[in-house]
Design a protein around this nucleic acid. Sequence first.
DNA 1: GTCTATACTACGATAGAC
DNA 2: GTCTATCGTAGTATAGAC
Lengths: 206, 206
Amino acid sequence: MISLRLLDVAIDRFGRHGFEGASTRDIARASGTAMSSITYHFGGKEGLYLAAAEHIGKAISERQAAPLAAARAAAEGPRRAAVEALLAVIDGFAQMMLADESAPWARFIMREQQAPTQAFERLWSGAMRPIAETCVRLVARARPDLDEREARATALLLFGQAMILRAGRASACRLLGLEALDAEAATLLRARIRANALCILSETPR
Amino acid sequence: MISLRLLDVAIDRFGRHGFEGASTRDIARASGTAMSSITYHFGGKEGLYLAAAEHIGKAISERQAAPLAAARAAAEGPRRAAVEALLAVIDGFAQMMLADESAPWARFIMREQQAPTQAFERLWSGAMRPIAETCVRLVARARPDLDEREARATALLLFGQAMILRAGRASACRLLGLEALDAEAATLLRARIRANALCILSETPR
DNA sequence: GTCTATACTACGATAGAC
DNA sequence: GTCTATCGTAGTATAGAC
């Protein structure tokens, strides 16, 4: 499937150089095909960009499906179970942020976060919103002292801890004195994220 | 000063479209000068890019100077004072992430984080490392139960909460159901960041 | 210092062969 | 479906006038 190869390369190039900076010539060449294949399969540069966003959304949804299903089930259960389910979703997200696989997706999404286009809409409703809304409900279950808006803010901030592992990757490496986030660093970071999240979610109203 | 105007526009364009995507023609036009001024003042597109990074580093250092000086003083004081000083630094960072002013800087830096060039080195040693290292010492003071690596990881993750306000701006708006992060949302988010950080920093060894 | 003019390269889109 | 060839536009760099 040449169109799949085009999508993979496109995600890499668009993420690395942005929509305007990426070149369809280069994407086609790196995919081992002619530039006009892009016109044929996706209608043009913009069609390829939107298809790339959709492709990322599907990949994320697939990888988060398991913890998300467990989380949905736990949203109505006891508080303790809700906390554990939320910790599992956050850890799943952290693992994704740590995995090499997510680097191209993250580059792509990060650009959309700064200046959303039509592609962000597809990413949000397809992959991100289902995860986010489930987490909001779990936070509300774990922290009944928070009102709706506070619970939403808290869910967002909990993800921030994991997101910095991608969004601030270069800083993370320098601060930890590493060339790259290896398996040992990943274990350490996941443990700290879990401890911090547990601390926040266990806080009891005074 | 035409060179300052060029720098401001360059930060915006490089942040928005990336190094390759931004056009020196466009930057010069929006600065009200001829393209060859860039060659004259900065030696070319790449010189302009590096100068833009340096410019951002200086702006950040200036704005974080006050809480940073207080934090340095508190690093040797009582634990309670270290916690408060660190909360102040994090809040200063959060305010910067919330301010409209930081949007162009953030776009620029975020790109460098994903694929660091020589420009990241200047940003890191000029502005980021001084802040980060001070925070590591404060975390170590607040959480003597953590070893050096754990303290470094924790300092990083604390900043993640604030960073998502920029790095995940579009998601933050959608999750909170807002068009933009207004003053009310800013107050709410800063309060939650503070509460979460306080909770993490106050955790006592069992 | 700042401009105009120009040389050269690369871009995206498209037409048409196979 | 995939290719080559080509069109019009826009990119950076540079030379030289003022």
